[in-house]
């Protein structure tokens, strides 16, 4: 067992030399277990977080007249399937769902890939102008682009992409948010020394990226994927302008829910609920990957 003095200490983190892999894995992440206080706090947070979604289910399962009563109902009722089928009659929900899955998946894949690459470059590679370019990248987040929708639409129209889902995918395929996020994460999660060791060992940049950086930043990539997917899924303002009911994303398809004789809250809620389901599935699949600490130790080329 080596003593503390022999372990290289880099930037406050103790870096394994590869001689004690088993001990490392036992101490992956926080070794502590959550106590009852933790569970209690998290349950309260969960209730507060989930309650409006629950209430959406309640509203979606009543008829409109029941909802208009003075005291709102608190428990679900039986009209859910009736409302959802009425919602389908009014709005192209399935088409919107499919388009949204495509759009959000493309944006998420592109964002995670390109932002991790760029974040790595800004965090670990030295090149002329890196600070200026990083600053420029962050600055691009600071201009409110509400009014930019009009010239953007004209640009898309000139490219022949109006009413096509590419118009919704392309503008956000890489975001400054993602680049900045990955840059911060990689800067703190991947020690310089490992990168340098990789270079010294003769690996090229992409190899280092693939073998050292990517495994280390899996939690960040997962979180970025979840947030990006959801942001793309919820995007409403630009898709309303760029798309139409013939080729909608799910938010655009919701627009048709209010076209009955008069807008019915219960049907709108039912349609909205249907449009949220895929998100829950994606999350359940991604959520388990926010586990870290696999980079301590063996990083063989």
């Amino acid at each position: 067992m080596t003593s503390t003095v022999d372990r290289p200490e880099v930037h406050g983190k103790v870096v394994a030399t590869g001689s004690e892999p088993r001990r490392r894995q036992r101490h992956r992440g926080q070794p502590m277990h959550g106590g009852p206080g933790t569970y209690l706090a998290l349950i309260v947070v969960t209730i507060v977080s989930v309650f409006p979604l629950y209430y959406t289910i309640v509203m979606a399962s009543h008829t409109n007249a029941e909802l208009a009563r003075k005291t709102p109902p608190l428990l679900p009722s039986t009209a859910l399937f009736g409302n959802i089928s009425k919602a389908f009659e009014l709005a192209p929900l399935n088409k919107g769902l499919v388009n949204s899955v495509i759009v959000s998946s493309c944006i998420t894949a592109g964002t995670v890939a390109f932002c991790t690459l760029a974040g790595f470059a800004f965090a670990k590679l030295r090149f002329r102008g890196s600070n200026v370019l990083l600053g420029l990248c962050v600055v691009t987040m600071m201009v409110p682009m509400q009014m930019g929708i009009i010239p953007l639409y004209m640009l898309m129209a000139r490219l022949g992409l109006a009413n096509h889902i590419e118009a919704v995918i392309l503008p956000t395929l890489v975001t400054a948010f993602g680049v900045f996020f990955m840059r911060q994460y990689i800067a703190s999660a991947v020690p310089d020394e490992l990168i340098e060791a990789g270079f010294v060992d003769g690996a090229n940049t992409f190899r280092i990226f693939r073998s050292i950086v990517v495994p280390a930043v899996r939690p960040a990539m997962t979180v970025l994927a979840m947030l990006t997917f959801l942001t793309a899924w919820n995007d409403f303002f630009w898709p309303i302008i760029a798309l139409s009911s013939q080729n909608p994303t799910v938010q655009v398809s919701f627009q048709s829910l209010a076209t009955g004789y008069a807008p019915e809250q219960s049907i709108i809620m039912a349609g909205t609920l249907y449009g949220t389901l895929p998100v829950l599935v994606v999350f359940a699949l991604l959520g388990r990957h926010i586990v870290g600490g696999i980079m301590q130790g063996a990083v063989k080329g």
């Binding site: 690459l117 760029a118 590679l125 090149f127 682009m145 010239p151 953007l152 392309l170 992409f206």
Partner: peptide, 25 residues
């Protein structure tokens, strides 16, 4: 550093897409 030239390629997608779709607006 060996990575310098690659760095420009890695940050290019962001700046290219920005130049294409956000700079003009």
């Amino acid at each position: 550093r060996p990575g310098s030239k690659a760095a420009y390629a890695y940050i290019a997608p962001f700046f290219l897409l920005f130049a294409a779709f956000s700079l003009y607006p």
